[in-house]
Amino acid sequence: MSKKILIIGACGQIGTELTHKLRAIHGVENVIASDIRKLNNDVVNSEPFEVINALDYNQIEHLVEQYHIEEVYLMAALLSATAEKNPAFAWDLNMNSLFHVLNLAKAKKIKKIFWPSSIAVFGPTTPKENTPQYTIMEPSTVYGISKQSGERWCEYYHNIFGVDVRSIRYPGLISWSTPPGGGTTDYAVDIFHKAITDGKYECFLSSETKMPMMYMEDAIQATVDIMEAPTESIKIRSSYNLAAMSFTPTQIAAEIQKHIPNLQVTYKPDFRQKIADSWPASIDDSQARQDWNWKNKFNIETMTVEMLKQLRENVYK
């Protein structure tokens, strides 16, 4: 019998592609997608799909019992830029949803949890280049504070209650299939869309703001890999650093211009610049590569080719 998986936040930027990937591996009927509202998209229409509020413990517990869930992927969260506009709700959603699934695992109602962290856990005092796995963490954003607190709770529940919770610190994620979701790294998605539709793009970060990035396919693969890894391979129960490439808006623009030479990019930094400045420029993820054999497939060149190809074939056809 296949294991049953619940994805909370399945209609989000990562949740959408994660749902498709897990259904391809485990079978559609074994992966229950859920979100706070029913959108008209592939995830909802391919069923099983349930409307669920990640802040409602009883709703989550009911679904776990109804479907005999063994693994939960908690993807519901308010992202960096959005969280700055609504700090109290961001804290409530990002923290209490995590407590709900940790407590279900503590009560032995589920066996395994995936919870995503982020490079937002680092702050202005963190070493910017090749940021180590263990380093100074003084996040200066609402999102970062909630993610760092979440990491501490994950480790605590593992150490004290034996909860099998696994986590990675996602860098900026680039995907063709879902629109930007309110993150500071979203310029690197938007620029591809505007390059194709308008031939020009106004970037909300300064031209030399370097940040760690990853193509969504790699992030999804890493998520599957860490969950499939043997328990003894997972040495870190807070969250693993994860990396693939780092670039500036200037560099990604130049890469796109190899394919769309007339693309014009201007720069008008807004409140997100301050968030970006507090984050690392590059990440040392040697521990993930060593412990569970993480390796990325895409770099800036191959990702650019793939993004433009997929957008032209699937979005702007």
Score class of each variant (00 low, 15 high):
Gln133Arg: 01
Asn58Gln: 12
Gly144Ser: 10
Lys235Ala: 12
Met95Ile: 15
Arg37Asp: 05
Ile7Arg: 12
Ile226His: 08
Arg289Trp: 12
Trp115His: 06
Val165Gln: 00
Gly182His: 08
Lys108Ala: 14
Asn41Ser: 04
Thr266Pro: 07
Gln59Arg: 12
Arg152Phe: 04
Gln273Ser: 15
Ala244Asn: 02
His20Met: 14
Pro87Asp: 00
Asp284Asn: 10
Gln59Pro: 12
Pro139Ile: 13
Val163Trp: 01
Ile256Asp: 08
Ser286Ala: 05
Asn40Asp: 14
Val121Gln: 02
Val31Cys: 08
Glu255Ile: 06
Ala105Glu: 05
Phe49Tyr: 06
Gly199Pro: 13
Val51Met: 10
Ser246Trp: 01
Ser206Glu: 15
Lys111Thr: 08
Asp92Cys: 05
Asn96Ser: 04
Leu205Lys: 03
Lys85Tyr: 00
Asn41Tyr: 04
Ala120Met: 00
Asn314His: 07
Arg169Asp: 08
Ala88Tyr: 09
Arg166Tyr: 08
Gln257Val: 05
Gly27Thr: 03
Val265Pro: 10
Asn40Gly: 08
Ser278Asn: 11
Pro180Phe: 14
Asp190Lys: 01
Ile8Ala: 06
Phe89Val: 09
Ala254Cys: 14
Ile236Lys: 04
Lys38Tyr: 11
Arg312Val: 04
Ile160Glu: 15
Phe204Gly: 08
Arg152Ile: 11
Met245Ile: 02
Val305Glu: 15
Gln310Met: 07
Met214Lys: 00
Ile220Lys: 02
Asn241Lys: 10
Pro212Met: 01
Lys268Ala: 09
Ser278Met: 09
Tyr134Lys: 09
Gly150Lys: 03
Gln264Tyr: 07
Tyr156Asp: 12
His259Lys: 12
Ile234Gly: 11
Tyr57Ala: 13
Tyr157Met: 15
Met1Gly: 08
Phe204Ser: 10
Gln13Ser: 12
Arg152Gly: 08
Lys38Leu: 13
Asp186Asn: 09
Tyr240Ile: 11
Asp218His: 00
Phe161Leu: 13
Arg289Lys: 15
Pro180Ala: 15
Ile110Gly: 00
Thr178Glu: 02
Ser233Asn: 15
Gly9Cys: 10
Ile260Gln: 12
Ser206Leu: 14
Ala105Phe: 03
Val43Pro: 04
Gly123Pro: 00
Met307Lys: 10
Asp284Glu: 05
Leu74Thr: 06
Glu138Phe: 07
Asn94Cys: 05
Tyr157Phe: 15
Arg169Trp: 10
Lys274Arg: 11
Asn86Ala: 03
Asn314Gln: 06
Lys258Tyr: 07
Trp91Pro: 05
Arg169Ala: 08
Ser207Thr: 07
Trp294Asn: 09
Glu313Ser: 05
Met227His: 02
Ile300Ser: 04
Gly27Gln: 03
Tyr267Met: 08
Lys194Leu: 07
Gln221His: 14
Thr135Leu: 14
Ala107Ile: 04
Ser175Ile: 09
Asn296Cys: 04
Lys210Pro: 09
Arg237Gln: 10
